[in-house]
Simulated scan of single mutants.
Amino acid sequence: MSAPTQRMHYEEQMGRIVYVHGDFVPEEQARIGLFDRGFLFGDAVYEVTAVIEGRMVDNDLHLARLERSLKALGIPLPQSLAQIVEVQSQLIARNALHEGAVYLQVSRGEADRDFLYSENMTPKLIGFTQAKTMVGTKTQRDGISVDLAADPRWQRRDIKTTMLLGQVMAKQAARARGFDDVWLVEDGLVTEGASSTAYVVTADGRILTRAASQATLPGCTQRALARLCAMHDVRIEERAFTPQEAQGAAEAFQTSATSLVMPVVRIADRVIGDGKPGPITRRLQALYLEAAGVPA
């Protein structure tokens, strides 16, 4: 039995320990309040950090984005960043997590239901782990198919809120149509994946992805990959691209904390390249795993 499988078996047998408002408790005992604004309004933000070989990947970027999202909504940090890191580390240790992800969510707090909120609310922090195979999956080897769908989300996509119903519906529709995932389109341009950053590689080897704006979420894996590309003289051009450009690309891929660098081999009804992950995508996969400390 592989190490990730052993850890998942451990979680299933022993039950997870989760973090709720200052306490580590078995998941069966975890409770949030009926009047938590995250539950009632989606008035909350979240982050997901990959864990590989028992270590968090790009966590500094995730915590920086958590702080930025909270600031954009006027929610104070529930604890110092150092204390939040300790919560994450304790969750990983208490659940013996070798490979998977650690999830954090901060809501504005609890109060009787009202669209308006008081300025002195106490934010609530919860966290849990999820055991999952992150490296060497079939989809990372062979690539995935993505559908194209109109972007149904609100205008502040740069804030990582828990309001994910648009993404849920788009992913569910894509799955029903036989696709693995979905890229979203607005005003004739691809914005991003429903839970990922979208990239294409042109015939002359240029990597295209959208620049940061309120139209997309600034991806942490995206930022980490950009740093690696700069270090290895791989050029990424930040500009929007059309669905037609995407379908005519030499290669395509997407990035996220839980899928790392994921090849895309079909977009809607068009096969990309020869239907296999291309050499640039393969190089970026290798660079990212090397930076994450995964043995070759």
Rank of each mutant, 00 (worst) to 15 (best):
G293N: 05
M1G: 07
G166C: 13
D274H: 09
R141I: 15
P4T: 13
R239N: 05
D269F: 13
R37F: 06
E27C: 12
Y19G: 02
T191E: 01
L148N: 08
M134A: 11
Q83F: 14
E192T: 12
R157T: 09
T49Y: 06
D58R: 06
A64F: 07
Q105K: 03
G275P: 05
D158M: 10
A286N: 08
R210S: 15
Y103G: 03
R227Y: 09
G22D: 08
A240N: 11
A226N: 08
D187M: 06
V20T: 04
I207F: 07
G219Y: 05
P243R: 10
S107N: 04
N120E: 04
L284Q: 10
P277D: 11
I92V: 13
Q222C: 11
I236L: 08
M169Y: 04
V106P: 01
L34M: 09
L116H: 04
T129I: 11
K124I: 08
A150D: 15
N59Y: 13
V201H: 03
F115M: 04
R282M: 15
P279S: 09
S69L: 13
E290N: 01
R282C: 06
V87K: 07
L81I: 14
T129R: 02
V48N: 01
G166V: 12
S107P: 01
G188Y: 04
S259K: 13
Q83T: 08
T242M: 10
L225A: 12
H62G: 11
Q140N: 09
L289T: 00
D142P: 00
Q244K: 13
P123I: 02
S259Y: 03
E47P: 02
T209I: 14
A131I: 04
Q247W: 06
Q130Y: 00
A111L: 10
Y199R: 13
D269M: 15
V264K: 09
I32Y: 03
A198F: 05
L61G: 09
I17R: 01
M231Q: 15
M134T: 08
V51D: 01
L125C: 03
E186Y: 10
A296M: 09
L104M: 12
T137N: 10
